[in-house]
Design a protein around this nucleic acid. Structure first.
Lengths: 110, 110
DNA sequence: ACCTAGTACATGGCCATGCATAGTACCTTT
DNA sequence: AAAGGTACTATGCATGGCCATGTACTAGGT
């Protein structure tokens, strides 16, 4: 029961939400996402991101197309499907509710 | 990959944070906590709460004393230990950081 | 005294997710 | 051709929330 571990637990579910948002803004591939998440201090490693993307694809929320790169192997560029966009709207509401509820608990005044 | 499941995942770690906050405000027992969490629309069941309280106690963050009830069996009234108070301060910072980071991602404007 | 209902606490097994680690495949550079 | 880097894949572990169930004690009615 240490801080690091709790942070990991807090991240569960949120990562999926963040990734969906990043993809919703335009075609991106894994390294783009890692860079953006790192830039806002959400540290994520490949071993977390790739399985997550696979889950999202299997659930029909995202799709990808291979794009040649001129500086390495080809990349998978992701976009949201229609179902993905719908789901993202629901995630927005779910997340806001949760933050709201937590706020009520943690800023309770007697 | 459905909303309900994602909500469950989002709650991981947050529940611990909320419980710590509730206990920090004064002596409470399990039903008090359930009631307060329910009142802000965070649905929690006993099978989640009791193991969590046991974890917190084993980690030395909370302690309890038995108190007789005049309307049923005795209750365990919980309070934070000194270590628990310290940990709660860290949780506050961790949670704020996470919300902040998520905010940056989800309200990104091009 | 007995039975039923209610209250309070506890546990075992399941599941989904994040992570560590290792591995594959391809490209560029020298 | 060799070396290093980039992008993606696969496997197994740890954690925490949830469901179903169980135990123990109390209160109230008959």
């Amino acid at each position: 029961m240490n801080l690091e571990n709790t942070l990991v637990q807090m991240r569960k579910g949120i990562l999926e939400y963040c990734i969906m948002h990043i993809i919703s803004r335009g075609e991106v591939y894994a390294s783009d996402m890692l860079e953006e998440l790192t830039s806002v201090k959400i540290m994520v490693v490949e071993g977390t991101l790739y399985p997550l993307l696979t889950r999202l694809r299997k659930a029909g929320l995202v799709e990808y197309k291979w794009v040649e790169s001129n500086s390495g192997p080809p990349r998978k560029y992701y976009t949201l499907t229609d179902a993905g966009n719908d789901f993202l709207l629901n995630l927005d509401a779910t997340w806001k509710d949760l933050v709201n509820s937590t706020e009520k608990i943690t800023s309770f005044k007697n």
